[in-house]
Amino acid sequence: MSRIGKHPVPVPAGVDVQVKGQDVTAKGKLGSLSLRVIDEIEVTRDGNVITVKPRNESRRARENWATSRTLISNLVKGVSEGYSVNLEINGVGYRAAVQGKELVLALGYSHDVRYAIPEGITIKTDKPTSVSVSGADKQKVGQVAAEIRSFRGPEPYKGKGVKYETEVIVRKEGKKK
Rank of each mutant, 00 (worst) to 15 (best):
residue 3 R to S: 07
residue 4 I to M: 11
residue 5 G to V: 00
residue 5 G to C: 03
residue 9 V to K: 00
residue 10 P to Q: 07
residue 11 V to C: 04
residue 12 P to E: 11
residue 13 A to K: 14
residue 14 G to S: 10
residue 15 V to T: 03
residue 15 V to S: 00
residue 15 V to E: 04
residue 17 V to W: 05
residue 21 G to V: 07
residue 22 Q to S: 07
residue 22 Q to E: 02
residue 23 D to A: 13
residue 23 D to W: 11
residue 27 K to V: 08
residue 32 S to T: 15
residue 32 S to H: 05
residue 34 S to I: 02
residue 37 V to L: 03
residue 38 I to P: 09
residue 40 E to M: 04
residue 40 E to F: 02
residue 41 I to N: 04
residue 41 I to V: 07
residue 43 V to R: 05
residue 43 V to C: 06
residue 46 D to M: 12
residue 48 N to Y: 02
residue 50 I to M: 03
residue 50 I to S: 00
residue 52 V to H: 06
residue 53 K to A: 06
residue 55 R to Y: 06
residue 56 N to M: 04
residue 58 S to E: 12
residue 60 R to Q: 09
residue 61 A to G: 03
residue 62 R to N: 07
residue 62 R to F: 04
residue 64 N to E: 12
residue 64 N to M: 12
residue 65 W to K: 01
residue 65 W to E: 01
residue 69 R to A: 04
residue 69 R to K: 08
residue 71 L to K: 15
residue 71 L to H: 12
residue 72 I to E: 00
residue 72 I to W: 02
residue 73 S to D: 10
residue 77 K to Q: 11
residue 77 K to V: 11
residue 80 S to K: 15
residue 81 E to H: 11
residue 82 G to H: 10
residue 82 G to E: 08
residue 86 N to K: 13
residue 87 L to E: 03
residue 89 I to K: 00
residue 89 I to R: 00
residue 89 I to H: 01
residue 91 G to A: 08
residue 93 G to L: 12
residue 94 Y to G: 02
residue 95 R to Y: 08
residue 96 A to R: 00
residue 97 A to F: 08
residue 97 A to C: 09
residue 101 K to A: 13
residue 101 K to T: 15
residue 102 E to H: 11
residue 102 E to S: 15
residue 103 L to N: 04
residue 103 L to D: 04
residue 103 L to A: 05
residue 105 L to S: 06
residue 106 A to V: 15
residue 106 A to H: 13
residue 108 G to T: 14
residue 109 Y to G: 14
residue 110 S to W: 13
residue 112 D to V: 04
residue 113 V to T: 14
residue 116 A to S: 14
residue 118 P to I: 12
residue 119 E to H: 12
residue 121 I to P: 08
residue 121 I to H: 03
residue 122 T to E: 12
residue 124 K to F: 05
residue 125 T to C: 02
residue 128 P to C: 01
residue 129 T to R: 10
residue 134 S to V: 06
residue 135 G to P: 10
residue 136 A to L: 11
residue 137 D to C: 05
residue 137 D to V: 00
residue 138 K to G: 00
residue 138 K to N: 04
residue 139 Q to C: 07
residue 141 V to A: 11
residue 142 G to S: 11
residue 142 G to Y: 02
residue 143 Q to W: 12
residue 143 Q to V: 14
residue 144 V to C: 08
residue 146 A to P: 09
residue 149 R to A: 01
residue 150 S to E: 05
residue 151 F to M: 13
residue 151 F to K: 14
residue 151 F to Q: 14
residue 152 R to A: 01
residue 155 E to G: 09
residue 157 Y to F: 12
residue 161 G to W: 01
residue 165 E to M: 03
residue 165 E to A: 14
residue 166 T to E: 11
residue 166 T to Y: 10
residue 167 E to R: 02
residue 169 I to N: 01
residue 170 V to Q: 10
residue 170 V to E: 09
residue 171 R to T: 12
residue 173 E to L: 14
